[in-house]
Design a protein around this nucleic acid. Structure first.
Length: 298
DNA sequence: CTCGACTCCTGCTGGC
DNA sequence: TGCCAGCAGGAGTCGA
């Protein structure tokens, strides 16, 4: 699933395509994803002018003139597919059925495309989500952040307001492993399994450490580590694993730069010498894989 | 309060 | 070559 850098990348792609456009038609092809779509969602989108986008954690917020804001969460497998009407679909990563042939003809319909928007300006944007863990909902424009899905969310990690003192306060009294704490969107918004692993590696903190023990020098390293890994991933256009594609169809390349994620058994880049690293280890914490270097991360 | 287990779903990978 | 168990980027809910 897309984590903060991927959501940011998709949002920028949508912004480039949709901002300023008027939605001519909106179609929902099932009743909902994780939850039912709000009543009359398609009708409410039709005729709306897209004013712009913003991101909160892993949510994209599509602001509409004189209408409520549309919240979009990509869940685990969600992606957006954008193309000009009449043009072949943008090539899609790792998915045979979706790749367009050279002539742009006879493309089978994209599987699991649950919502389709078409604009006056001739864009077609589809929300594809095989696992259907994504969601959409409306939030009042003047109270977007009070929506139940956003209300309890922690600080945006890339904003200045997220600093060592804020993280330390959030971790205080948490008797849970730091890995689990960082996945908790109430502590800090937007981190997922990959970037938590990467940030803990950069900060040289063992994922099993209790959150309460992190305030101090460790937290002082962790905050810049989080900011750096997210910023670098955004600069690289987001990571691209199995079924993630940027809104404009380009793929991100940050996955080539993972230090620990999905690199079990390989030497880490911090241990000295060719034989100095015991190898990146994998363990399961609250049901999810954690990758870390047992020598570097303490 | 806080935490871990469970749950929703489909698709891909790896081992046999 | 084919089959199938296991695992996957999220996160709300429930029970302890």
């Amino acid at each position: 699933m897309p984590e903060l850098p991927e959501v940011e990348t998709v949002m920028r792609g949508l912004d480039a395509v949709l901002t300023g456009e008027v939605i001519r038609t909106a179609e929902t092809r099932r009743d909902g994803l994780r939850w039912p779509f709000p009543n009359g969602m398609a009708a409410a989108l039709q005729g709306a002018r897209v004013e712009g986008f913003r991101r909160r954690g892993k949510y994209m917020l599509m602001r509409l003139a004189d209408r409520p804001t549309l919240l979009i969460h990509l869940g685990m497998s969600g992606r957006m597919v954008a193309r000009r009407l009449g043009a072949p679909p943008v090539p899609s990563l790792g998915r045979q059925g979706a790749a367009s042939d050279a002539r742009g003809h006879n493309n089978p319909p994209e599987a699991h495309e649950h919502v389709v928007l078409e604009t006056e300006g001739g864009w077609r944007v589809g929300f594809v989500d095989p696992r259907r863990f994504g969601c959409m909902d409306f939030a009042p424009r003047e109270a977007e952040d009070s929506h139940p899905l956003l209300a309890g969310m922690g600080p945006e990690p890339l904003e200045e307001a997220f600093d060592v003192a804020v993280l330390e306060a959030a971790l205080a009294g948490r008797r849970t492993p730091i890995k689990a704490a960082l996945l908790d969107q109430r502590i800090v918004a937007g981190l997922g399994n990959i970037y938590v692993c990467e940030a803990l590696f950069r900060a040289e903190i063992a994922p099993t450490r209790l959150a309460t023990t992190v305030p101090g020098p460790d937290a002082a390293r962790l905050v810049p580590a989080i900011k750096a890994v997210l910023a670098e991933a955004i600069a690289a256009g987001g990571s691209s694993l199995r079924d993630y594609v940027r809104a404009d169809g380009e793929v991100g390349f940050f996955q080539e730069r993972f230090d620990v994620y999905d690199r079990e058994g390989q030497p880490c880049r911090l241990c000295p010498g060719p034989d100095g690293c015991p190898g990146i280890a994998r363990l399961v914490q609250s049901g999810r894989s954690t990758f870390y270097c047992p020598q570097t991360q303490r």
